[in-house]
Design a protein around this nucleic acid. Structure first.
Lengths: 238, 238
DNA sequence: GGAGAGAATATTGTATACAAATGCCTCAGG
DNA sequence: CCTGAGGCATTTGTATACAATATTCTCTCC
């Protein structure tokens, strides 16, 4: 998209994810425009996008606020993602091409390399992970599915749990990808779907465990009294 | 939403669905603004919404065009809807309350009334149908699911197959709703999910049959040479 | 003291002007 | 005749001013 609109989107999103704008904060267009150094017009676009990411909610009278995220909401998102990505995996297995399979193998090779290091390269891991899942989605051949998952995976929930992952957890993720490749190579949709669902839900529990650990250790701004929490800067490795 | 923005959205959407703007037509903001009697600002909002409805596609350089809908795309949308609404039904069954169940019974009673007439009231049928499915979605208790299905069911695909339905087909729809109510009353999620999936996919085949019949009878603007078609003004009764 | 009407304030919606970019057409050169 | 560079026309992006609407505060009346 355009420059100013993108800048506004990224800036506001970062402020929310960094906890700079706590859940429930009202987001006035003018104030944000000043903070981002742009006019209200691109800010309005950005707020629209953040709303579809569910990082921002709007009242019936069009006032925008930073969304509250309960653990329940996170579970909700992962459940949907497990179902939709599982469906994508099934379709991908049924339509697999040598080309797509090659891209997945390449992506997972990058992951293997990142994990093999003495101190794993989390950035490279996440990039390879992104490529891997993108290749599946592309192989699934459903534009609608891309649209639906895009607003569920890419934007809304970006955390950095992966940084807390030990080498073993990262390796398990790689291993599950290998299993997916095996299922794809055989064109077994049911198998691929099953692997993918557990792959995603395992990531949820990694998040939930980390979250419980964090909130037990230091019940700071991560978890407010009523169970709501601000979105964390966490990337979940799936 | 606001008045001008809503008018623009509805006007453009109607022009697309009525075939007034055939698939592939470029949608210039200024031209649309003039047609709708508003300025470009609300038109831009409207185009964004239509894009998320997938009635409009944008090139990488931000030009908007009326989307092409192949039968394949329609099948795609129904497959996704079957999965998501099936999931909603399962969740709803597991969380059913007397209140929600009451609303569903009331909605289906309205449908029964509309169908029982000598000449069925399709408008009342569709409204009851909408209420019925909305009650399920609400009982499912997932805001994300509402968002995902909203952009899949409400906006994107509105056809009027129901008008071609005979009383028997309308009655079958009512009957499937009754079966859903039975599953909900018993809290049987798997049963509810199964009914819902077949309910949706039956609607797809009703559409596909009607479409085949239409395009065989008069291969007019409904079906262009390459298999693409403009969206029809058709409401599918599910 | 509480409730409601109304004004004052704050916020969002729309229109318009201008800037930036994209696409198209022409024309020169091979 | 084809190709590509340049400029012109079209289209979208952004800023700003103003209008409409929502919210809040205050003051009156009960």
């Amino acid at each position: 998209m355009s420059r100013a609109s993108d800048r506004a989107y990224a800036a506001i999103r970062n402020m929310i994810l960094a906890g700079e704008l706590p859940a429930g904060t009202q987001l006035g267009e003018e104030a944000l425009a000043e903070k981002c150094g742009v006019s209200r017009t691109p800010v309005r676009d950005a707020l629209r996008r953040l709303e579809s990411d569910m990082l921002v909610v709007r009242t019936d009278t069009q006032r925008s606020f930073v969304a509250e995220w309960s653990l329940h909401d996170v579970r909700d998102a992962f459940d949907l993602r497990a179902m939709l990505e599982g469906y994508a995996a099934r379709r991908a297995a049924e339509r697999m091409t040598a080309d797509s399979l090659g891209r997945m193998r390449a992506a997972n090779a990058q992951i293997a390399q990142a994990v093999a290091l003495p101190r794993p390269d989390v950035g490279a891991f996440l990039e390879g992970n992104r490529l891997f899942h993108a290749a599946i989605l592309e192989a699934a051949g459903s534009r609608r599915l891309v649209a639906q998952l895009g607003s569920l995976v890419e934007q809304p929930v970006v955390w950095r749990t992966a940084h807390h992952y030990g080498p073993d957890a990262l390796h398990r993720s790689w291993s599950e990808h290998e299993e997916l490749i095996a299922a794809f190579a055989r064109g077994d949709g049911a198998w691929a779907e099953g692997i993918m669902r557990s792959h995603i839900l395992r990531a949820y529990h990694a998040y939930a465990d980390a979250h419980r650990g964090l909130s037990a250790a230091k019940p700071g701004p991560a978890l407010s009294g009523n169970g709501a929490m601000t979105a964390h800067l966490i990337e979940v490795a799936a």
